[in-house]
C-alpha cells in the first residue's frame, strides 16, 4: 500500500520567530491591522510505500525526530492517510 504523509513543523511556543514578527509588521504596513502571533513553519508532504501499515506512523515519527524537525527548538505533527492501490 501507499500512504500519504503530511508533516507540519513549527518553532516551539516561546521560541522567538523573527520571520513571523517581520511578516506581521509587513502586513500592518500594507493595511492589515490586528494580526498577532504569526508563526512561520514548514509543511512537508510525501508518499511512502509500506508493507505493514501499522509501522508507518512509527516510521514517520522517527523521521521527524531524527531529521525533519529539531526537537530542541521545533515541534511537529503529522497525518498519515492510507491509500490502497487500485
Amino acid at each position: 500500500m501507499t500512504a500519504q504523509v503530511e508533516v507540519h513543523i513549527q518553532l516551539k511556543p516561546g521560541m522567538l520567530d523573527p520571520q513571523g514578527e517581520t511578516l506581521e509588521n509587513a502586513l500592518a504596513a500594507i493595511g492589515y491591522q490586528g494580526v498577532r502571533g504569526m508563526r512561520v513553519g514548514k509543511w512537508i508532504t510525501f508518499e511512502i510505500e509500506a508493507d505493514n501499515p501499522d509501522t508507518v506512523e512509527a516510521q514517520v515519527d522517527e523521521m521527524c525526530s531524527r531529521l525533519l524537525a529539531n526537537p530542541i527548538i521545533e515541534r511537529y505533527e503529522y497525518q498519515v492517510t492510507r491509500e490502497a492501490h487500485t
Partner: peptide
C-alpha cells in the same frame, strides 16, 4: 547541546 536559530534581526 542546543541549536542555532535564525538571527533575531533577520
Amino acid at each position: 547541546p542546543g541549536a542555532l536559530m535564525r538571527n533575531n534581526r533577520l
